[in-house]
Design a protein around this nucleic acid. Sequence first.
DNA 1: CAGTGTTCAGGAT
DNA 2: ATCCTGAACACTG
Length: 143
Amino acid sequence: MALVEGACRFGLWWVHVSWSGSVIHHVRFATSGSEGTVPDALRRYLRGRETDLSVFSTPATDDDAPYAAIYRVVRAVPYGSTATYGEIARAAGTHPRVVGMAMKRNPVPLIIPCHRIVAAGGIGGFSYGIALKEALLAMERKK
DNA sequence: CAGTGTTCAGGAT
DNA sequence: ATCCTGAACACTG
């Protein structure tokens, strides 16, 4: 199946996606972009009309590298709720700092909801800025 | 080897 | 109850 790219607006940001069928290869945020095709469910999600992104898959969870195990656990945290780096680490059999690294290098944010992972004592970090992380969490809470 | 989107216990305020 | 420290953790480039 052919690789397709497109973008969709989310508040102040643009979400750029490259995918092939139901397999999402890459997702990134940017401050610019232009309206294009993105998978339907993802577009609905970004408008707050869809809570289930499990129809998608991504190569990032496939191999047996340590990160893949972490990504699988993270995918299981439900819409609208959060987990801590420590909880994820225990479930994946690794250390919280590694979870941090895995989140930072997450190739498919949203599909792997790294924004739902917060620090034990606060909000934690986010590659694209805390503001975006909070916006995503706020949107999910509202539904 | 240094550096990480961390955590926890311990001690001081 | 809240605010520092400091050390350890597993993995990556």
